[in-house]
Design a protein around this nucleic acid. Structure first.
Lengths: 145, 145
DNA sequence: GATAGGGAGTTAACTAGTTGACAATAGCAA
DNA sequence: TTGCTATTGTCAACTAGTTAACTCCCTATC
C-alpha cells in the first residue's frame, strides 16, 4: 500500500504545479502551459517536426497538426531544410523568442516566490533525490510480461 | 534556471512511472493506466458521475462519456440513486472488483521490485518530502494576476 | 539509370479531455 | 402551492493526443 502511494503523490504534485503554471500563463499572457512548452522546446535552436516531437515526448503527427497555429501567430517560422527536401525546420521568430523569455522568467519568478520559505539547500537536495530516482528508473528497461 | 528544472524533473519522473505502469497493464491485462485509475477510484465505494470526476480530477462530462464503456464490459454498474432522481451511482461489479484488486496488486509488486535496492527508509523519507512540498503548494492559493 | 528502402511529414479515424448550453430534478422560501 | 436556485447529468463543438496508411524524397545498390 505504502509503495504505490508515492506515485499518487507524485502525480498530484505535478498536476498542482502544472495547473499553477497554466493559471499564471493564461492570466498574464493568454497562453496555455502546453503552448509554453512547445515554444520552450525550440529555445535551444531549430528542430524538425520529428525532433520537436521527441523533445516534447509526443508523436510527429501531433507536432505537425499544432505547428500551423504557432506559425499563424508569427511565433515560429516553418521552413524546409535546404539539405533535405522533405524535412521542415521549426524555429522561433523574434516575437516568439521574446515571448518565451518573458514567460519563462515569469514562471521562474513565481516558483522562487512560492518556495521562498524553503532553504535553497533543501530544494537542491530534493532535486538531487528526484534525479536519483529518475536515473534509477531509466536503467534496466526490463521487459515485463 | 535551477528552480524551474525541478518541475521538469518531476514531470519526467511521473511520465516514466506512468508509462511503466501502463506498459504492465497493457501487456498483462489488456488495459490502459487510465482505465485502471477509473476503476481504482471506485474501490472505496459507489460514486456519482460528479463524485468520480472529482476523484479523477476530471469534469463530469468526461466521466459521463467514458462510463458506458465500463458498463458494457460489466466492470461497473450504473444505477440511479433511489434518493435522487437525477443522480447516477457508479459501482464496481464483482468482476470489476476482482480486476482492480489483481491489477493494483501487480502494480504494487512491480513497484516494490523496481525499488528493491532502495532502502525502504529512504523511500519513506522521499515520500515525506513529496508530501511536504505538496502540502506547501496547497496552502495560500494566491490569486496571481 | 532503375529501383528498393528508409526517413520525414501529412492525413484520417479514433480516444480523452475541455467549455458552454441545456434539461431535469431537488430543495428551499414565501 | 408555487416558483427561484442548486445540483446533476448529457450533448455539441472544440483541442490535443494516438496509430495506421499514405506520400515524398533521398540514398544506396544492382
Amino acid at each position: 500500500m505504502e509503495e504505490a502511494k508515492i506515485t499518487f503523490t507524485l502525480n498530484r504534485l505535478v498536476s498542482v504545479l502544472n495547473s499553477h503554471a497554466d493559471a499564471i500563463l493564461r492570466a498574464r499572457y493568454d497562453m496555455t502551459f502546453s503552448q509554453f512548452l512547445f515554444l520552450v522546446a525550440l529555445r535551444p535552436g531549430p528542430l524538425s517536426m520529428t525532433g520537436l516531437g521527441a523533445s516534447l515526448d509526443v508523436t510527429t503527427a501531433a507536432v505537425s497538426k499544432r505547428a500551423p497555429w504557432f506559425e499563424e501567430r508569427k511565433l515560429i517560422r516553418i521552413h524546409s531544410d535546404p539539405r533535405h527536401g522533405r524535412k521542415q525546420l521549426l524555429s522561433l521568430t523574434s516575437k516568439g523568442q521574446r515571448l518565451v523569455e518573458e514567460t519563462a522568467e515569469a514562471l521562474d519568478q513565481a516558483f522562487i516566490e512560492r518556495f521562498s520559505d524553503f532553504k535553497s539547500s533543501d530544494l537542491a537536495a530534493f532535486h538531487a533525490d528526484l534525479n536519483r530516482v529518475l536515473e534509477h528508473l531509466m536503467t534496466i528497461p526490463k521487459v515485463t510480461t
